[in-house]
Nucleic acid binder design. Structure first.
Lengths: 130, 130
DNA sequence: AGAGTGCTTGACGTTAACGTAAATGTAACG
DNA sequence: CGTTACATTTACGTTAACGTCAAGCACTCT
């Protein structure tokens, strides 16, 4: 079964990250591994947090965003106002993502049409080169 | 009418970029303004190139990519092999953009469903904070 | 004891595309 | 000639998220 405490290597293997990354997250106060003398021991809580960190990254949140969200719940997991703020943060991020998605769609369409048209961009380049 | 030679400020106003940007592009060999003593004078050719640079940026090309493409045509605008290479570069970039677009779509869907579900991410955070 | 393995901290390096500040030049206005 | 307005070069600063050494413990095996 999954031991409650994991070494840095076990963590790396389990989450496919480098030791540097875990130390970096600790330095940024995203993780708080215990110590066995000098060595880090990651707890179940660290693993839960790391899961959320990686998930947040997939959503395009910055580590700083993630840290803030995590901190809100560290201070008071039952604070409704903070839950709301987290929601808002997520909604904002969602809006950004949707805008980005749309823009990218437009750019793709443009680029495609230029390629289909025999390369207006290339024609443009030709003009640019005189 | 549009004068054939433009000062750096006229260029900035016309293209909504900063002087720093134009000097930077010159340093990167994307533009080659003439000189009136010490001052830069941008030609029609520079404007055509800048148009393409900005277009390329909208498509997500790096300045280095753009410079290479521009250079290909500077050397020989009629070289068919180079036209092909430019095409390929554009196709590659298009593929990247489509992949990115798709990924973003997935992330949006995920984030939305978590928000709709009452915030699995938030629930997750709650768990993480214990 | 020596070797090997894994972990630690510390600190500088990387990348892109400019921003920003300092010191200086020069052209035109009054 | 003095000031104002814009131009120029040089060069360090910025941002994110780690990468990449370097030097040195801590254990274990032999």
């Amino acid at each position: 079964m999954t031991n409650d405490l994991m070494s840095i290597r076990q963590m790396c293997d389990a989450f496919e990250v480098t030791p540097r990354t875990l130390r970096f997250y600790e330095a940024k106060e995203l993780l708080f591994p215990q110590r066995d003398g000098t060595r880090r021991l990651f707890t179940r809580r660290d693993r839960a947090r790391l899961t959320l960190i990686l998930r947040g990254k997939r959503f395009g949140f910055s580590l700083e965003d993630i840290r803030q969200i995590l901190d809100l719940y560290d201070r008071d997991g039952s604070n409704h106002a903070q839950t709301i703020r987290t929601y808002e943060l997520a909604q904002q991020r969602l809006a950004q993502m949707e805008a980005q998605h749309a823009e990218l769609g437009v750019a793709i369409t443009e680029l495609k049409s230029e390629l289909d048209a025999g390369g207006a961009m290339i024609a443009g380049l030709r003009r640019a080169a005189e």
